[in-house]
Amino acid sequence: MASYKGNLLNHFKIVKKWADRAGADAILDVSSFRLLIRRNDQQAVLYPQFMNVEDRRRQYSPELTDASRRFIGWLPYSVRRWAIASDKIEFKRYAERAGMRTPEYCLDDDPAIRDVIVKRRSSSFSVGIRGPFRHAGEAPLDASQSEYYERFIDGRIGKIWFYENFPICMEIERMPSVTGDGMLSARDLIQVKLRAKGATGFDMERAETLRRFCGDSLERVPARDETVVVDFRYGSALAVREPGQNINLKKAMPEVWSDELRAIGEACWRGIPAEIQEGTIYTVDVVVDPEERIWALEMNSNPFVHPFLYGHLLSNLVKRDAAERVRH
C-alpha cells in the first residue's frame, strides 16, 4: 500500500476540495507543473517539487526532468534553506537551547557511550546511517563523512509538518518489521516482504546489526505471529502501513502531544531567519517513545509536502494576496 502523500491523486483531490469550497480556480501548467490558484482578483502560484533519481541517488528538485520519478507536492515558493535545517548538529544544538527534547549526541570517538546510531551531519534519505550499537567502540566515527553518535531511541517513528509555527499534520508508524510464520527465518521473511512490495536496495547488513543490538539474529525462525523489528528508518522499504498513520492535527490534535507539538513549532519557527519565516513549510523528524514523549531528531526545509497542508496553505495565500492588494 503506497503512502497517502505518495499518491498524486490525493494532492489533486484536496486542492480541488478547497477550490470548490472557496469558489476558486486551480489551473495546472503541465509543462512546469506549477499550479495557479485564482479567486476573483486574487491569485497565487504554487511551485512543484519532484524526486529525481540519477546514478541511483535521490534528490529533490523544483524542475520536472527526465530524471523525475515522483511528484512530492507544491510549495508557495521555489526553494528555501536555513542553517538548522541543513546541519543536524546545528539543529540539535538549537533544540537544546530552545528546550526541545532531542537525543544525546557526541562528535568524538568515545567507546564508553552506549546504545547509539551513527549519522552524518548533512545527509538525506538516511544515507550513511549505521547501527544501532550497544557500545560506540563497535563503530568508530569517520571524520571525512562528518559522522557523529546519537543515542538510539526506541519507539514509533514520525514526521510532523508545520506551516510557520503551526503543527498541521503528522505521520506516525511502528518501526518496520516482519511477522513470523513459524517456518521462515527473519532474513527469509524480509526477502518475501521485499519481493511482495517490489522493493530493492534494502540494507540487510543494517537489519542484522539491529537484530544483534536486540540480542537476536536474522537467522532465527520467529514464532507464528511474532513481530520482529528489522529497521528503524522513516521511509523504509519495509514500512508497516496501517490506518490512522496520517493524522490531521488541525482536525484532531491528540491531547497527549498537543502542548509538545505546539512548543516544537514555536521553537523551530524562531530558528528560521526572519526574512523567510512568513509562509514557510518544514518538517521535523521525531521518535515517540513508549512513554509518549516526542524526541526531535532533525528539521527539513523543502520537504515532501503532505496533502493535509493544502487547506491551511491556500487559505493563507489568498488572504496574504488580498492584504497586499489593500496595502498597495
Rank of each mutant, 00 (worst) to 15 (best):
Leu8His: 07
Leu9Gln: 14
Leu9Thr: 15
His11Thr: 07
Lys13Cys: 03
Val15Thr: 10
Ala22Asp: 05
Ala22Val: 09
Ala26Ile: 00
Ile27Gln: 12
Leu28Trp: 10
Leu28Ser: 06
Leu28Asn: 01
Phe33Pro: 00
Arg38Asn: 10
Arg39Cys: 09
Asn40Val: 07
Leu46Glu: 03
Tyr47Lys: 03
Tyr47Arg: 08
Phe50Ala: 01
Asn52Pro: 04
Asn52Glu: 15
Glu54Asp: 14
Arg58Lys: 14
Tyr60Lys: 13
Arg69Asp: 03
Arg70Pro: 03
Arg70Gly: 07
Phe71Tyr: 03
Leu75Pro: 06
Ile84Gly: 00
Ser86His: 04
Ser86Met: 10
Ala95Phe: 02
Ala95Met: 02
Ala95Ser: 06
Glu96Ile: 07
Glu96Asp: 12
Met100Tyr: 02
Met100Cys: 09
Glu104Val: 06
Tyr105Gly: 01
Leu107Ala: 04
Asp108Tyr: 12
Asp110Phe: 08
Arg114Leu: 07
Ile117Pro: 06
Arg121Tyr: 09
Arg121Pro: 06
Ser124Leu: 15
Phe125Arg: 10
Arg130Thr: 03
Pro132Asp: 06
His135Phe: 14
His135Ala: 13
Ala136Gln: 01
Pro140Leu: 09
Leu141Thr: 06
Tyr149Lys: 05
Phe152Ser: 11
Phe152Leu: 11
Ile153Phe: 02
Phe162Leu: 05
Phe166Asn: 10
Pro167Phe: 04
Cys169Thr: 12
Met170Asn: 00
Met170Thr: 05
Val178Thr: 02
Gly182His: 10
Met183Phe: 12
Ser185Thr: 11
Ser185Leu: 05
Ser185His: 03
Ala186Tyr: 14
Val192Pro: 00
Val192Tyr: 07
Lys193Gln: 12
Arg195His: 12
Lys197Cys: 08
Lys197Trp: 14
Gly201Cys: 08
Phe202Tyr: 12
Glu205Phe: 14
Ala207Pro: 07
Leu210His: 03
Ser217Asn: 05
Glu219His: 13
Glu219Lys: 11
Val221Ser: 06
Val221Asn: 08
Glu226Thr: 10
Thr227Leu: 03
Val228Glu: 00
Val230Asp: 00
Arg233Thr: 11
Tyr234Cys: 05
Tyr234Leu: 07
Tyr234Lys: 04
Glu242Val: 07
Lys251Met: 11
Ala252Phe: 01
Pro254Ala: 06
Val256Ile: 15
Trp257Phe: 12
Asp259Gln: 14
Leu261Met: 12
Ile264Asn: 02
Ala267Ile: 04
Trp269Gln: 11
Trp269Met: 04
Arg270Pro: 00
Gly279Trp: 08
Val284Gln: 05
Val284His: 01
Val286Ser: 02
Pro290Met: 10
Glu292Tyr: 04
Glu292Pro: 01
Arg293Gly: 04
Ile294Asn: 02
Ala296Cys: 14
Ser301Ala: 14
Pro303Asp: 07
Pro303Gly: 01
Phe304Trp: 13
Phe304Asn: 14
Val305Ile: 09
His306Tyr: 02
Leu313Met: 15
Leu314Lys: 02
Asn316Val: 00
Leu317Pro: 12
Arg320Pro: 08
Arg320Met: 03
Ala322Trp: 01
Ala323Arg: 12
Glu324His: 13
Arg327Gly: 07
His328Asp: 12
His328Tyr: 12
